[in-house]
Each structure stands twice: as C-alpha cells, then as structure tokens.
C-alpha cells in the first residue's frame, strides 16, 4: 500500500483522494504485428498499464469500440478485426500483475502470427506508439465519516477520483479490492452485502462517467437515498 491510505486512521474517515495522469512517450514504436509482439515482451510494465488503463484518464472517446489500445490498433492500424476482438476481450482485472497481463497479450499476438501467412503491417504514418504514464495522487481534503455518506459523495467525485478509489486501489491493496470495500470491511460491521454488490461492478469495460453513475446507483439504492 502507498503511504497515503484512503483511511485516516485516527478518525476512521474515508479520505477522498484524486489523481492525474501524465503520459510519457517511451520512444518505442511498432509498425507490424511481429514488432508489437516483441516489444510487448520487453517494454516497461508502466506502458502495459497505460495501454490498458490509461485510456480511462486521458483524452479519449468515452464509448470506444475496444477498451485497450492494442485492440484498437489491431483494428485501425493493422485492419485485423479478428485480432482486435481477441485482444479486446482481455480483461486486465483477471491478472494479478502486469507481467502476467503482458504475457497474455504476447500470447494472443503469437497465436495470430502463427495463423497468418504475411505479418500484418500498418501504414508508415500509423505505428503503435508505446506510452507510459506517471500518476500524481493528491488529497481533495474531502472526508466521509459514515458509509451512508458514500451515496452523497460519490456522485460529486471527479472521474479521476473514481479511478483512484475503484480501479487503482486494486494495484495498491493486498486483496486487490477497491477502496470502498476495504473501508467498509476494515472500519464497519454489517456491510458485507454492500461489499458483495460492489464486487460485481466491473471496472474495465465502461467509461469512468458510466462507472461513477453505476456506483452512485448502488450506494443510493442501498442507503435508500
């Protein structure tokens, strides 16, 4: 866990954090599927993170056809719809670390290379650019005292704050859960049912605005607000 937990230990409050993402060019690029596969195996893990999760925080259309950059490039760069579908279904929440996720991507690419006679290539002006990110996390000074407060606060949280507490938390917390469930479980009793409902909200295949709306609906319905 980072040195900033969502918990204010003295007061059992939920401290609302926010985050901002800075994208950094790695200088690495791939012009065809073989190059993509090779570089996926060696690129900084931060780049794998960025190409799966970064799309949620950077300027991007909220309702993309596919939710990771590898699948999007397979479709629009390589014009390989089949590969795009196979890459598009990869769910990063199923992998306990980025190296396992990286291996899955490389595996899908390898399979596709085995099936094709010619290596699929992109136009010279449309390579895959590997990007990594820096994430800056900061305190919003907003605190929630009781679980009921989630129903009022979550709808007002920025989408990046939702990202930090509901998605990024899975990288930070030992049980790979979100901050809301961790808070409810660590500080209160009797919210196991709410945690179970939260556990069913999938964080990946929707935009952050939609995710915030779904979480809002969960908390409002649970607390009758």
């Amino acid at each position: 866990m980072g040195n900033l937990s969502m918990l204010n230990q003295n007061e059992r409050q939920f401290a609302v954090r926010d985050c901002a993402l800075a994208a950094i060019a790695t200088g690495e690029r791939a012009y065809n599927l073989r190059e993509l596969g090779d570089k996926v195996l060696t690129i900084d893990p931060g780049s794998i993170y960025y190409h799966f999760w970064g799309g949620l925080l950077r300027p991007r259309f909220d309702d993309p056809e596919y939710h990771n950059d590898f699948a999007i490039w397979a479709l629009y760069g390589l014009k390989d719809a089949l590969l795009a579908e196979r890459l598009g279904i990869i769910d990063p929440t199923e992998f306990s670390d980025l190296n396992l996720l990286r291996e899955r991507v490389a595996e899908v690419i390898e399979e596709r290379l085995d099936e094709t006679e010619e290596v699929p290539s992109a136009r010279r002006d449309n390579p895959f650019y590997f990007v990594r990110s820096q994430i800056v996390i900061f305190d919003t000074q907003c605190r929630i005292d009781r679980p009921e407060g989630l129903a009022d606060t979550v709808p007002l949280m920025s989408v990046s704050s939702v990202f930090y507490h509901f998605i990024d938390a899975r990288r930070r917390l030992p049980r790979r859960e979100d901050d809301f469930r961790a808070w409810l479980g660590n500080c209160f009793e009797g919210y196991e049912d709410l945690s179970e409902i939260l556990g069913k909200v999938h964080p990946f295949f929707s935009g952050l605005t939609e995710l915030r709306a779904r979480l809002t609906a969960v908390f409002r319905s649970y607390f009758g607000k």
């Binding site: 980072g2 040195n3 901002a20 800075a22 931060g46 820096q134 994430i135 800056v136 996390i137 900061f138």
Partner: peptide
C-alpha cells in the same frame, strides 16, 4: 479538448517534475 484540460495536464507535469520522477507520486 478545452483549455482547462490542458491546464490540468500542465499542473500534473509540474507537480511530477518538482516531486520526483517515479511512476507514482503521492502527495498530501
């Protein structure tokens, strides 16, 4: 793509450069 988004990203880069070069920078 409004100016406010570009400003947010400038602030992020400034904070990142001042406070270190790690992938994650956690600030109070």
């Amino acid at each position: 793509f409004l100016l406010t988004r570009q400003l947010r990203e400038y602030f992020t880069v400034m904070a990142a450069l001042i406070h270190g070069c790690e992938d994650r920078i956690e600030l109070e």
